[in-house]
Design a protein around this nucleic acid. Sequence first.
DNA 1: TCTAAACTTGACCATTTTAGTCAGGTATGT
DNA 2: ACATACCTGACTAAAATGGTCAAGTTTAGA
Lengths: 141, 141
Amino acid sequence: MKLTSKGRYAVMALVDLARFDTINPVSLRDISLRQGISLDYLEQIFSKLKRNQIVKSTRGNQGGYVLSKKPNEIKLTNILSAVDEKVKTVQCKKESKKGCNGKATKCVTHNLWDELETHINTFFEKKSLQDLLKNKSERVN
Amino acid sequence: MKLTSKGRYAVMALVDLARFDTINPVSLRDISLRQGISLDYLEQIFSKLKRNQIVKSTRGNQGGYVLSKKPNEIKLTNILSAVDEKVKTVQCKKESKKGCNGKATKCVTHNLWDELETHINTFFEKKSLQDLLKNKSERVN
DNA sequence: TCTAAACTTGACCATTTTAGTCAGGTATGT
DNA sequence: ACATACCTGACTAAAATGGTCAAGTTTAGA
Ligand code: FES
Ligand code: FES
């Protein structure tokens, strides 16, 4: 089980954005440089964030992105689901009448994974961008 | 973020094992049939479980596997880490002096992922095989 | 003793996912 | 007009996943 870079980058970029968008829109180029993320990749990610109304864009010279809500209104759930980083723990489709083994009964671990899914989602629903703004970049060690 | 089949299968197989190993060792063939998991793949998985002292094997005719501890002593953490299903949320190596961005400071999301890691591990440490034995296979719907 | 059941090991592989790159746009402030 | 920055889609190398296959070794029981 792991978290992919796409979700990680999305959160990093948004934290960066939240810190710098107070006056002007922030260009992806700046975020790319500050956070060390490929510009082209960032564009893909922001295209999704925009489709999900997490950011707004201004085109042209001096353009860039701005958060479309306040940091405390943007939950991690929103960010991660926007970039298709879904927490998928059960294997079966929940609506389906079949378990992940193709049989009519749920597999022996179904309930376990379902519980875990809830556990993780709860975490992501509680955390907002605001919470991440507090801890400024700390030294390693 | 997702959980891979290897970890899922490992848990399924061990639950099956725990239910049937009361008298004789259980053969992988039986588990394979009951749980619908490829026999060859199960062998790979059990080889790891054995290396990590979660199961013991008996060779030869009528041989098979047995749990090496009681179900309540086997935590999910043990199972998952045995099959290399690690919960890895931070990108950087924790011991390293560098953050995941190659700089000397931790990235802005480091603390977040670290918290999440703890959150998930806590879940896996609380759950034991014993807990899974309770819920017998339930009907879907 | 012979044999079949069962574990053991390691190599191999097809498919999918990931983490991007690249090449072309389009919009707009100055 | 032109530089800056967003926008879109196609493409791809590399890694991970989810296995299969082949060739054993070990041991119970007939
Ligand atoms: S995870 Fe739902 S039936 Fe196996
Ligand atoms: S996750 Fe540790 S520095 Fe980014």
